[in-house]
Design a protein around this nucleic acid. Structure first.
Lengths: 307, 307
DNA sequence: CACCGTTACGGTATCCGTAAGGATT
DNA sequence: AATCCTTACGGATACCGTAACGGTG
């Protein structure tokens, strides 16, 4: 019995008992998985997996118990590994944050600068992707923490901690009809061509949902994956857009105008995503605190530790 | 990082960080302990143990965390091993009971016969010793369960579950003065030479304690470690003795007479000793139930699982 | 026949025990 | 001097990856 065998067992369960898949996932060959699990079974003295011909369908009754123990052991081992990464005198501590372009460029700028003064020796890695992928990345522990707007799969293995609200604005070129003519309404917005975020992004799908729920049919002329691209095309006169208020800066964007739209669209809720685990590193909790200063860290930790 | 290293760490803590001791305990050489812990430290990237010269004094701050994780992992691994022993198709399930001569011969006779019908394939091993050693055997997990009379070290690592009371009798040869002359008292007993259990045994030390607390000075002519020896010498006329009531059987002991002494000596309390652990095997819990039918098994398990 | 688990085989890394070395009490 | 941890070294063992094999859908 050894840790590696426990890992194989846990991975086998997660990969639907397909040893070839497990082999790829663990970066070894399938024969190793097969052999090591056989060795484990030989040592324990009973079958752990049910074999129907050459397919494996699941755990035996005893196997369920073995699996439960294996999962706990692997979790402890992973905790130890993470703890060592944080406290190693050799290697630089690292913090990997998975997030979208918007949060990388706007939301996280200030927090990251502040975090740097707290942990000057921690290597920060920003993994940029779309919200769905951010969740996957955190779920598979390719990142320590995720930052995105709320849009979670129901049966996800990550916990989401709300931390900020993001109001929206309409951005237009200068001298646009929307800039005058009174109070902004959804109806007035849809009279103009729209550029919005790609539907993969919360900022895009939320806008569409709001408009369609009112029976409005916007004329979408373009979708894009980041605010800078959208701003460029809005300035070029292709259309108007609804973006996060932080995106617009009067000085930096002379070719644009912004109109508050917080009464029309529900603010986006920024959440931090964390994979539940026993050991939460100082860097992770400090980063979370920097992004959401009001956060109760002990509450977070207990939420993250609990199943 | 592997399980063996975790074991070494846990053992090192338990053996006062004396690697030579640890080596003897784990049945390997001290160099293995030294090297494996060094390898672990190299992998983790920080020292786990504090070395003052060539002595090891304890854990570093980080080491404490490593130790906590190691202890949990070792516990899980031990649980798995025990679970496997119970469910192995290869090897016969075994139940090792540590107890004294008296309980082996009298208390456990009926329960063991009953247990045999429940678990006919379980190999029962009776380890016979004195009460102090029974506690040590259970504490070091050389036995699954211990049965003895209550006499626990305060800082013991085992839990004691009371299950039966044992009344005492005075045994004498036939036609002994104590057999007539009215009600039995402590004063009348100490007028005669006494044979008692060795002081290591609860039955001996409890009798002495009762007599001495009344200021009585018995004349001890002999001590022995088991009831059969005592009975032989009482029958031979060397002295009288105070033994557990179950020891005397009118038919089997024609050369003896017994007088109830339950009003003079507090009954002995038989306890089961268990080492707290996560996994309690079916054989252990069934054995406990057989010895103490009134026992609430879920209560026992939670007591045994708790710290 | 594509996929999947098992088995055979050879190379390698790891682990172990003995024994010697050096430090401490 | 006794005890104790560390290091060196040779041998045993376990583990790994490639590749061939044998079911299965």
């Amino acid at each position: 019995m050894n840790l590696q065998q426990m890992r194989y067992l846990v991975a086998a369960s997660a990969r639907d008992f397909n040893f070839s898949e497990v082999g790829r996932f663990i970066h070894t060959s399938q024969s190793v998985i097969s052999r090591q699990i056989q060795l484990l079974e030989a040592e324990l003295g009973f079958d752990v997996l049910v074999r129907r011909g050459k397919r494996i369908t699941g755990f035996t009754r005893e196997g369920e118990t073995v699996f439960a123990i294996a999962r706990r052991m692997v979790k402890e081992a992973d905790d130890l590994r993470r703890f060592a990464e944080d406290h190693s005198k050799r290697t630089q501590a690292r913090l990997t944050v998975a997030t979208t372009h918007f949060h990388a460029r706007y939301t996280l700028l200030e927090p990251i600068l502040k975090f740097r003064t707290l942990h000057p020796h921690v290597l920060l890695r920003l993994k940029q992707s779309d919200p769905t992928d951010v969740e996957r990345i955190v779920g598979q522990e390719e990142a320590d923490i995720g930052v995105t707007a709320q849009m979670l799969d129901s049966d996800s293995e990550v916990v989401a901690i709300p931390c900020q609200s993001v109001p929206r604005v309409v951005i237009t070129p200068p001298r646009h009809p929307l800039l005058s003519g009174g109070r902004l309404t959804l109806e007035r917005i849809v009279a103009h061509p729209l550029i919005i975020y790609d539907e993969k992004y919360t900022g895009g799908s939320a806008v569409m949902q709001t408009l369609q729920s009112k029976g409005l049919e916007p004329q979408i002329v373009m979708t894009a994956m980041d605010a800078d691209v959208i701003k460029t095309y809005v300035a070029a006169g292709l259309g108007i857009s609804i973006v996060q208020a932080a995106v617009y800066d009067r000085r930096q964007d002379p070719g644009l105008r912004a109109i508050d739209a917080s009464h029309l669209f529900k603010p986006l809720v920024i959440v931090m995503l964390l994979k539940p685990r026993l050991y939460v590193s100082k860097a992770v909790s400090d980063f979370a605190l920097t992004v959401a200063p009001a956060l109760d860290i002990s509450k977070m930790e207990s939420a993250v530790r609990g199943k």
